[in-house]
């Protein structure tokens, strides 16, 4: 599904990722952990195609296509979804309008008919209910005045509406209360299945109790220094990164 080989990424002339390899086969959920500043968000932004994240070496294949050659919207239309670590506010634009434009852009690309306002609302209401979210959030401007937790839940709502093939969640679990965490986990689990893959960036083992990952990777200083199964996350929780990072450096 997603194949990353020897990925080097520069931001503002400074190399942040120094040769990263990662394979996420279809149907799998991988967790990505690692100290602050190790490059997790950089990886997420690079996959989503953010301007200023220059791939200087290596390659990224998504469903066999060279992802780096595509514009951000083309990647999104092909099914790459990024739940932002810091969701962005867009004043004056209602959540409903924003998402309807997004959903229809993706549907057009997939050759599906666009949803009209009524069809869209029907779908949105149904998804909101499953996420235990207030319907009123549809008419509120995108992320404006949302609490930290509400913003994160809104990202999951958008993810559900857009039905992605590769979901990258950048610390979506941070700042969530325990009920919200369970809901987010359900959201991720619901999107588990053949033909889909998920990359969960997280600092906490907690989320992984609800979403059991197929693999756990540790990113440190721009490289993956260890990969393992879900036990690795428990180990990290107990011991921290220090020993691992030291071992990798020698």
């Amino acid at each position: 599904m997603l194949n990353i080989e020897d990925l080097h990424v520069e931001v503002d002339g400074k190399e942040i990722l120094h040769g990263l390899d990662l394979r996420v086969p279809p149907g799998e959920v991988h967790a990505m952990m690692g100290p602050n500043g190790s490059g997790k968000s950089t990886l997420a932004y690079t996959l989503a195609g953010r301007e200023g994240y220059a791939v200087t070496r290596g390659r990224v294949l998504f469903q066999g296509q060279d992802l780096t050659a595509m514009k951000p919207e083309e990647r999104a239309q092909e099914g790459v979804f990024l739940a932002f670590q810091y969701p962005v506010e867009i004043p004056g634009v209602s959540n409903a309008n924003f998402l309807k434009s997004a959903v229809n852009a993706v549907r057009r690309h997939r050759g599906q008919p666009e949803l009209d306002a009524i069809e869209f609302l029907k779908l949105a209401r149904q998804r909101l209910k499953l996420l235990n979210m207030d319907e009123a959030s549809l008419s509120r401007p995108v992320n404006v005045g949302f609490s930290g937790g509400e913003k994160k839940r809104n990202e999951i709502f958008q993810m559900w509406m857009l039905d992605p093939r590769l979901a990258i969640l950048d610390e979506t679990d941070s700042g969530l209360d325990i009920d919200a965490l369970k809901i987010v986990a359900e959201g991720v689990n619901a999107l588990r299945g053949p033909g889909r893959a998920t990359l969960l960036i997280t600092h906490y083992q907690r989320l992984l109790d609800y979403v059991v990952p197929d693999k756990v990777h540790v990113l440190a200083a721009g490289r993956i220094i260890k990969s393992g199964d879900k036990e690795l996350a428990l180990e990290l929780e107990a011991k921290g990164y220090a020993d691992l990072v030291k071992a990798a450096a020698t």
């Binding site: 953010r50 999104a76 979804f81 932002f84």
Partner: peptide, 9 residues
């Protein structure tokens, strides 16, 4: 970028 990541040109 946020809008484009959601599929808009």
């Amino acid at each position: 970028f946020y809008c484009r990541q959601r599929g808009m040109s």
